[in-house]
Amino acid sequence: SEIVKHAEEALERGEFVRIEHNGRVIEIRNEEALEELRRWVEK
């Protein structure tokens, strides 16, 4: 997914991403959060 790709690229640069999706906000700061995002987006 485009969202996950964006988050992965930001993590590689040492940045973090805040994503709003279906009214929820998730902050991607590490691999664990990235995995959570993947599960969340796939639903």
Rank of each mutant, 00 (worst) to 15 (best):
R24T: 09
V4P: 02
V25M: 08
E15V: 03
G14F: 03
E42D: 10
E9R: 12
R24N: 07
E12V: 11
R24Y: 12
I28R: 00
E35Q: 10
S1G: 10
A33D: 15
I19P: 01
K5P: 01
A10Q: 06
V17M: 09
G23C: 09
L11Y: 09
S1P: 12
E12K: 15
F16D: 08
R38Y: 03
E35C: 10
G14K: 04
L37W: 02
E12Q: 14
V41F: 12
E42T: 09
G23K: 02
N22I: 05
E8C: 13
E27W: 10
E42K: 08
H6W: 15
E15M: 04
A10H: 08
I26H: 07
E31F: 14
R39F: 07
W40G: 03
L37M: 02
E12P: 03
F16K: 11
F16G: 09
V4W: 09
E32G: 08
R24H: 11
L11D: 03
V4M: 11
R38V: 05
L37P: 00
L34N: 00
E35P: 01
A33M: 13
I28T: 00
R18L: 09
E20G: 03
E2K: 12
E36I: 11
E35L: 06
H6K: 14
E12N: 15
E8T: 13
R29T: 13
V25L: 08
I3Y: 05
R39S: 09
S1R: 14
I19F: 09
V25Y: 10
V17L: 14
V41G: 02
G23Y: 01
A7Q: 01
R39Q: 11
R13S: 06
E9F: 01
A33K: 06
L34A: 00
E12I: 12
N30T: 12
E9Q: 12
A10G: 05
I28P: 00
E15S: 07
I19D: 01
H6S: 10
E36M: 11
E9H: 08
H6F: 15
R39W: 07
V17G: 04
H6P: 02
V4Y: 07
E35A: 11
S1Q: 12
I19Q: 01
A7P: 02
E35V: 07
V25W: 12
V4T: 05
R39N: 11
V41M: 11
E8P: 01
E36T: 09
K43Y: 14
R13E: 06
E9L: 09
E8Q: 14
L11C: 09
S1V: 11
G14W: 01
R13K: 13
V41N: 02
V41Y: 08
I26E: 01
H21Y: 15
K43M: 14
G23M: 02
E20K: 05
L34S: 00
R29I: 14
N22P: 00
L37V: 03
F16R: 12
V25R: 04
G23E: 02
I28N: 00
V4D: 02
L34R: 00
G23I: 00
E32K: 11
R29W: 12
V4C: 04
R24D: 06
E27G: 01
S1N: 12
E31M: 14
N22C: 15
I19N: 00
I26Q: 02
I3M: 10
K43S: 14
H21V: 15
E42A: 09
A33H: 11
A33E: 14
E42F: 04
E42I: 04
F16E: 10
E12M: 15
I19L: 07
E8R: 15
K5T: 06
V25K: 04
K43E: 14
E8W: 10
V17K: 01
E36K: 10
E2R: 12
H6C: 15
R18V: 15
F16A: 13
A10W: 05
A10V: 05
A33R: 05
V17D: 05
L34F: 02
E35W: 01
R29M: 11
I28H: 00
A10M: 10
E9V: 07
E27P: 03
R13M: 07
E9S: 09
E20N: 05
E15C: 14
E36Y: 08
F16S: 14
H21Q: 05
N30E: 04
R13T: 07
A10F: 06
R18C: 15
I3F: 07
R18K: 14
E36F: 08
H6E: 10
K5E: 04
W40N: 04
V41Q: 04
R38F: 04
R13L: 08
N30C: 12
R24F: 14
H6N: 10
E27A: 06
E12A: 15
I28Q: 00
A10S: 08
V4G: 02
E31Y: 15
G14D: 07
E31H: 14
E36Q: 11
K43L: 14
V17E: 06
E31D: 09
E20D: 06
E20C: 15
E35I: 07
R24W: 11
R13Y: 03
F16I: 15
A10L: 07
E27Q: 06
N22A: 11
K43H: 13
K5C: 06
R24E: 09
E12Y: 11
V17R: 00
E36C: 13
I26S: 01
L34C: 01
E2N: 13
L11E: 02
K43W: 12
S1D: 11
W40A: 06
E42H: 04
L34K: 01
R39C: 12
E42G: 08
N30F: 05
E36R: 10
E32N: 08
A33Y: 04
R18E: 12
H21K: 05
E20V: 13
R39H: 11
R38S: 03
L11I: 08
I28F: 03
G23P: 00
K5D: 03
L11T: 03
L37Y: 05
I28K: 00
E27M: 09
W40D: 04
E32W: 08
V4S: 03
K5N: 05
R38H: 04
L37G: 00
I19G: 00
V4R: 03
R38C: 07
E15K: 04
S1C: 15
L34G: 00
I3H: 06
S1E: 11
V41H: 03
R29D: 10
